[in-house]
Design a protein around this nucleic acid. Structure first.
Lengths: 246, 246
DNA sequence: CGAACAATTGACGAATGTCAAGATCCGTGG
DNA sequence: CCACGGATCTTGACATTCGTCAATTGTTCG
């Protein structure tokens, strides 16, 4: 069961806030985030509106259908983005990694909830504030739109996976896609970090926790991957790629 | 099997082109399309760049991974948007209806292929032309971005369906969501048009054609729906809603 | 050390897929 | 108008994948 220690939006006093010590100029994710399209002066303008916000493992950044008061840049850590069915069945729509922007559709309500998988650092903006900046800077909107297009492509890939792949293909494709996403943000390694638990993977892939566990261990025994605590080393990439049937 | 009579982009001479007789001013979908945010003078400007294009049933408007030469407003008819796995398994990502804009992410390649489910009329723009207009009109970009957000929400809904719903829930939810989409574009009716075949529904819901057929007929026998050629009358809405488990 | 949680493993069952046979629909051409 | 043929849809019998339930092991952290 998930630990819900409350949303930061609803209980702001529970969250560490305040401007980052050194500002946007040496932000770790500046070059991979939406901010990469901003000029130095624009960056300062945005910085004036920013709030630093950190979460601990299990904390909720925002909940599905809540009014979208803020938008966020993920600086460090990972979150899971989920949607619930009334009876409690859960679908993990995706995982947010450093450089990702949460709330990029600028919609009135959040369409998913976002929960920290471990310690997370974010850069928060009031949605209205941010929308005003976007209104004045079409190239920022353009950048958001490009990201939305990328998200759309990712979710199409995920629909193909959920609808038409077998359990083994799903797990293999998941490991490979996670590796690609880490590579995109400059963290390339044969060992893929898996900050989420087995249940999160299952809810992302439309499987049960038992099936995910069985397949991961089968891949391990077959020396296609090497399971390590909190991650998996991809040993036989070409075999995984064949398995994933991409 | 699908009839692929060739892409219009590759064989333009096979397509009826030319400006609509009466222009954008009395375009049937103007008020529900992206064009709804344009002023009369802007509309004329866009009209100058537009080409009318029609398709017959089974024709391909564009193919997955092709360079995105054009973007389209759907004026009349319906298309299926699909992605293929190398071995031929197919996922229908969605169905495009009148008022929908194809290519709204303005990406370099199409991420899906689009095939006409029946006679289709579209309004075509060269992607570069359209992008230039968008560049000059931030409120048009804003409108595209809003639509992208809506698409993102739809695809999250679909991921939840594919990953966590049972076959019966999938079919019920599909019928209801189609009804909602028709209502959105001003075509409300208890009888939902089903311009796609059973195989298309199956590939959209992550099921087989036999399962879709069995469930639709079971719903019919249970008087929850009434199957009619090319559509379904939703008899017992509240039962369907309970089934869909939304 | 021990309690709580997370992951693994096995035995079994159910939902859905597969295969195969018919029925129905629909456009075409006589 | 009717008859034909192909495509689409329906239905049944059976197979398989994956889920369910339950027990066990492993891990984390006071």
């Amino acid at each position: 069961m998930l630990v819900d220690t409350g949303s930061c939006e609803r209980t702001p006093q529970a969250c560490h806030q305040g401007r980052s010590e050194n500002g946007c100029a040496d932000c770790k994710v500046r070059l991979i985030s939406v901010c990469s399209v901003l000029e130095p002066t624009e960056l300062e303008e945005l910085e004036a509106l920013s709030h630093h916000l950190t979460l601990d493992k299990g904390q909720t950044l925002f909940g599905q259908d809540e009014p979208a008061g803020s938008v966020f840049n993920v600086i460090e850590g990972a979150l899971r983005l989920t949607r619930l069915l009334p009876d409690g069945r859960r679908q993990v729509m995706g995982f947010a990694l450093p450089g990702d922007f949460l709330g990029l559709a600028l919609q009135v309500r959040y369409s998913v909830s976002a929960e920290a998988l471990g310690p997370v650092r974010t850069c928060r903006f009031g949605r209205e504030d941010f929308a005003a900046v976007v209104e004045a800077k079409p190239h920022l909107l353009r950048s958001l739109h490009e990201r939305a297009g990328y998200e759309l492509t990712l979710s199409q890939e995920q629909m193909l996976l959920l609808g038409r792949r077998t359990a083994e293909e799903k797990v293999a494709a998941f490991l490979l896609s996670l590796r690609d996403r880490y590579a995109r943000i400059g963290h390339s390694s044969v060992t893929v970090e898996l900050p989420m638990g087995r249940q999160d993977m299952a809810d992302h892939l439309g499987l049960t926790i038992e099936t995910v566990s069985r397949i991961l261990n089968r891949l391990d025994r077959a020396h296609a991957v090497l399971l390590v605590p909190g991650g998996a080393r991809l040993i036989d990439l070409s075999r995984l790629e064949r398995m994933a049937a991409s």
